[in-house]
Design a protein around this nucleic acid. Sequence first.
DNA 1: AATGAATGAGCGTTCATTCAT
DNA 2: TATGAATGAACGCTCATTCAT
Lengths: 201, 201, 201, 201
Amino acid sequence: MKGKGAYGKLGVVAATVSPSGALAKEKKRAILEATLAVLRERGLSGLKMEEVARRAEVGKGTIYLYFRDKKDLLKALVEERTWAFYREVEEEVRRKAPFFLRLEALLQKRLAWIDEWRGLWAAVAREAMEDPTPWLKGLHEHYLHLLEELIRSGQEEGAVRPELSPRPTAAVIAALGCSPQLETEAYMEHLLLVLRKGVAP
Amino acid sequence: MKGKGAYGKLGVVAATVSPSGALAKEKKRAILEATLAVLRERGLSGLKMEEVARRAEVGKGTIYLYFRDKKDLLKALVEERTWAFYREVEEEVRRKAPFFLRLEALLQKRLAWIDEWRGLWAAVAREAMEDPTPWLKGLHEHYLHLLEELIRSGQEEGAVRPELSPRPTAAVIAALGCSPQLETEAYMEHLLLVLRKGVAP
Amino acid sequence: MKGKGAYGKLGVVAATVSPSGALAKEKKRAILEATLAVLRERGLSGLKMEEVARRAEVGKGTIYLYFRDKKDLLKALVEERTWAFYREVEEEVRRKAPFFLRLEALLQKRLAWIDEWRGLWAAVAREAMEDPTPWLKGLHEHYLHLLEELIRSGQEEGAVRPELSPRPTAAVIAALGCSPQLETEAYMEHLLLVLRKGVAP
Amino acid sequence: MKGKGAYGKLGVVAATVSPSGALAKEKKRAILEATLAVLRERGLSGLKMEEVARRAEVGKGTIYLYFRDKKDLLKALVEERTWAFYREVEEEVRRKAPFFLRLEALLQKRLAWIDEWRGLWAAVAREAMEDPTPWLKGLHEHYLHLLEELIRSGQEEGAVRPELSPRPTAAVIAALGCSPQLETEAYMEHLLLVLRKGVAP
DNA sequence: AATGAATGAGCGTTCATTCAT
DNA sequence: TATGAATGAACGCTCATTCAT
């Protein structure tokens, strides 16, 4: 935060200090990907900037052209990955397909996402932000909205019991896979049982 | 030669049997308690041995009389707290009381436990152990058994729908509060609806 | 500036965070001495904490028990050395001895001091403080006062021409050796000529 | 292989003869000027090549077309500025004008020069050269010669007391403003008193 | 000639761990 | 048993320098 003054003569001062351009985006992506990979393999305390650089095949200093510091890198990672996941969920929710197919695909994505983080998501978010609580709340709210939308569309489609209120049901679905130890099979079995219209609970 | 020098050649590793005695136990407890407090306040990367010592009102070196190193301290913390929680759950499960009272008390305890860790539980466990997966699986299995036992006793008591299989239902209950953002109210509402015998789902 | 909280049970919280005690003072002194030595040999950009530690025969981390950071170390050095010099000057000024003996001794001390810093004094002061100007002004004012006192005592003693005003004369003496290149011999010759009562200028 | 790699094998060191041409000279000047500006504002440790480039409105790499490295840049700066000052002094010394006017103008220039460097001159010189002492001595000798010449011309003109030897007097004048804290008013007062012929000292 | 993205050696600083007391 | 001053390996980050364009 020292000398970010306007560079060059053109007023095209990028929003970030980062190098701009198409292949710059590519490099940024590579760094984020490497970060997650190291995080999964070595855990939070095993996350060293040097190894991230090695993994991303860039110089150590290069990371600092794209991210202010380690904290900023983690923040970018958490945000980017979380929104990417939500975009996928959104797509799935709005896809033209029978409710239970969409539900299953969505749950698979959720599990993949959980697995991707190995339970470190919350801890990384805490490292990344001063007070992560409001941000986390906001994210979760967004997720719940998507799931509510899914339930409603399932009810309109006639696949889901109409007497279920969307919000609590969404909350239950949201809980899936919060911990890597959950028995996903059993969880799904329960969901199918509870949601499916015309089946005795 | 101070610092992190070679760990005792000739196997003369000072067996960390810990000081014995009653007030020694008390000191150990104070250290573990301080560790969790610092963890909650400062996060995983903010956990410094020095601050733990200050909080526990002992010297920095004293911690090393009770725990081999930081990793060992974390391991002890995770184990101690987790088993303490399971003991409470067990007690609740076996208490002589109507099913739904026990269920509610249990869910409250679960929420308190979740809140206690602020989502750091998994990350701390990863710091503490080389390969945490089997250990975590074992723990969770134990928890599920307790919940299954609860469901069964509820069915025997006639409070829970007999057609629910205990295992999947236990899995759903176990998921409660895995993330601090879950809507616990909604979650409970859903559970009551689904479990309670004689109520249309 | 993180956790300076009260240590120990005794309320004897030292003014600094530094370890207190007699041999602690000794260590602090050794570090400061080493700092100046490195500074003289390697210049400002050649001043590495590691070499200071090696020179002071302490561990690198030990320096940080006595000084907050490099800047703080430099600040302590500048202050300590400067005041030490002024104390010597003061002693000389007030010594019971003929004026010209005191003047010569004082000028020798000044030269030793100048040589000690190798012209880096001002640069080090700038590294050490946010805005060094007022502090420098204050120091110099103190020095000028001492020299004025010297002139006046010389005049009372009858050794110095009474028509010289003390302040300007003090300013001229203060200028001696500001740069290591000054010809001290010539400078002294001039001073003797100008000051000595009863000698044609 | 980027970074600080081996300096051209086979002696293919791009002789830093600098780009030639008129506007090339202009660019070199801009870089030197920017260097001094940054030095004054941020001090020696705050002197970053990047900021120099920004100030000079050239690319960072461009600096390396005109100067071998940072050290070379500093050396060029010290030399250029010092000689420029001496040229001004020389001009003043040889100007056709009454002695005391020339003296005053010279002292003003000296003060401006001192102010320009903010006490960093010696430190910068030390950064710039391996062993700066002989070079500094040479410079100072040149300055003293000029001042001696001034004194002599003042004596020939009949304005300066003939009994003063030029060398010591030159040394005293040279000392003016060696430190930014000197009381220049007082210093001048003293000089006028001492030098002016026909005035009782 | 000019540029600035990329690099990595190097440095300041932290903090888990030891051990003399 | 208890302590905290001392240590140095390790890590985050900087910035002079290079070189493809």
